[in-house]
């Protein structure tokens, strides 16, 4: 159990703050696809890949006082922001975690700079990445009809995925 909690805390430490549950979900999923050592199990949901396990883990981290969740009221909906608390940082400091910090930093920064909607697109494309690109496009346009993604959005997302894959992964 503990290492998995610690990895999420390490992610939050790299990110500083993550705004939105959807964004957090997608960052962990894309991070996992990019070989960050997350083990949360994902299945496909409304906004693409989603992990109930991650949701529960976040609740646990908040209830342990290691992560702070701040609810902000936006126009018509609530948004949740997450950051590591002092106790969380202290715990993480003493926890023997195997975490590729040098690799994670630019990756997490690149992900956190993007909007939740864009990350939803990227994670959905990665979810179907075993399919040929044309079929991925078809899946996105069928399953994400309400999001009105365009061909240009998809191209931007492919480029973004390529750029993430250019970040050198540490060799053991």
């Amino acid at each position: 159990m503990l290492p998995e909690h610690a990895k999420i805390m390490a992610l939050l430490q790299e990110a500083g703050e993550i705004v939105g549950r959807k964004k957090l979900q997608k960052i962990v999923y894309i991070g996992k696809k990019m070989k960050l050592p997350f083990q949360e199990k994902y299945t496909y949901h409304i906004y693409g890949p989603y992990s109930e396990e991650l949701t529960l883990r976040m609740e646990e981290l908040c209830s342990l006082g290691f992560v702070k969740e701040v609810k902000e009221q936006k126009a018509g909906y609530a948004q949740y922001c997450y950051h590591l608390t002092e106790n969380g940082a202290r715990f993480l400091d003493q926890f023997p975690l195997s975490w590729p910090a040098e690799y994670a930093r630019p990756l997490v920064t690149a992900l956190n700079e993007r909007s939740a909607k864009f990350l939803e697109l990227v994670s959905t494309m990665l979810y179907f990445e075993e399919l040929p690109k044309e079929e991925v496009k078809e899946k996105v346009f069928t399953l994400k009809k309400s999001q009105n993604f365009t061909e240009t959005d998809l191209e931007e997302a492919w480029d973004f995925i390529d750029s993430l894959r250019m970040i050198p992964f540490p060799v053991k």
Partner: peptide, 16 residues
Amino acid sequence: SDLPYDFYRPGEEEEE
């Protein structure tokens, strides 16, 4: 969180 069962969630704006 190690358990594959959950409770009912009312669903908020960002709920999946």
